[in-house]
Design a binder for these strands. Sequence first.
DNA 1: GTCTATACCCGGATAGAC
DNA 2: GTCTATCCGGGTATAGAC
Lengths: 232, 232
Amino acid sequence: MIVDLTDRDTDAGRRIRTAAVLLFARRGYAATSIRDLGKAVNMTNAGIYHHVTSKEALLADLMRAAQRELIEATERMLAPYERPGDRLALLISSLTAVHALTPMTSRVMDGELRSLTPGSAAHAEIIALRDAYEDHWKHALADGVEQGVFRVADEKLTRLALMSMCTGTSEWYRPDGDSTLEQVCAEFVAIGLAAVRAPAEAFATADFTLLPEFPWEPPHASNDPRPDEARR
Amino acid sequence: MIVDLTDRDTDAGRRIRTAAVLLFARRGYAATSIRDLGKAVNMTNAGIYHHVTSKEALLADLMRAAQRELIEATERMLAPYERPGDRLALLISSLTAVHALTPMTSRVMDGELRSLTPGSAAHAEIIALRDAYEDHWKHALADGVEQGVFRVADEKLTRLALMSMCTGTSEWYRPDGDSTLEQVCAEFVAIGLAAVRAPAEAFATADFTLLPEFPWEPPHASNDPRPDEARR
DNA sequence: GTCTATACCCGGATAGAC
DNA sequence: GTCTATCCGGGTATAGAC
């Protein structure tokens, strides 16, 4: 569809993407130069352009792949389930887990949409993908309300509140923190189902092996995320 | 303490700060140039420097003032209350209301800490202010747990989850949306108290007249926030 | 208090050697 | 596939006229 692609499946390509995700997540896209990227992978800025058509195309590629994988993983998880309570529980725990386990990719995905030129094909494409993902949430909530198992004041408000809670993990979750990922997800599912006044039953639990894979996500390291509060 | 101040209380100063908050919130600090700022207030870039010592000092000033006002407003609200349930309810609804009513300032406050040079006095100062604010949350949760009125798996996890929910409103809340601010706050308080397993009693309600005032916050306009999804 | 002009640097991106 | 060298625009910030 769009030929503006970046070098995949080569070793240099992967190293560049990994460095780009790290730098874009930490400093932001606008504050990261191609020269910074070059330094991070021991190349000159000109070398980068052998693997990348432009800085913006690189960002778009990362975001496109991340959004697509999130959608596919979500659909893999939801497939066997029909009940809105199960589907909402899976949406909450999978979104939480993705943000906790791949915080750098998630931060780029959630925070750099504004860096794509408005009106460009890439910008429109990423928005469409994000909307396609969010449709799963809209439908789960609408189905639950329609079937009378959810009681909600405003579906949009509820959806956005729960999504904020889930995506927030990319800012603070640490694998060596006080809670395991399973505990975080269980807690968030409990909060979410309480928010829609769903009766406390047993609902589906996320299978983390179905999560998307981002081969370029840098390892969950030292001071990231929130390097500014490492001392806590 | 720090003399690196920006022109306050003059008309030009206010117009510059208003434009800066708008641009920093929309495009990000790094992607906003002093020339952009000049265009927005009908000045050349050189004119800006008559009111601002540097771009970074301007950002620091905005963040410092916003954090200070948030802290002061929070303390005004909390003052009459002792019970952890009341205090948590007020923390939730005031943080939500501030992010909903002054989304641009809030987005800068929450998202641009990384744009202050690490190690600079301003960077350290803003972190200290943010920590001072978050201490109110820590104490409310710790007190509730200690007094046996809250039951919580991990206090840090709970605090960060609830704060994410509250701050998220700066990304999606619209005054002309389906819910009033009072409804949003009430819903979030209910979710928050459920998250700490607090018994359902009557808790204090936020008095919005005690909220901080940001004289530079641009009016809640047309497509902001989330200009990319105006069509929804 | 705002302008024009300018210093100086760094940004994205390309050409062409090796 | 990576380099050096280069183009050119735009960045922050300052000097000095009005």
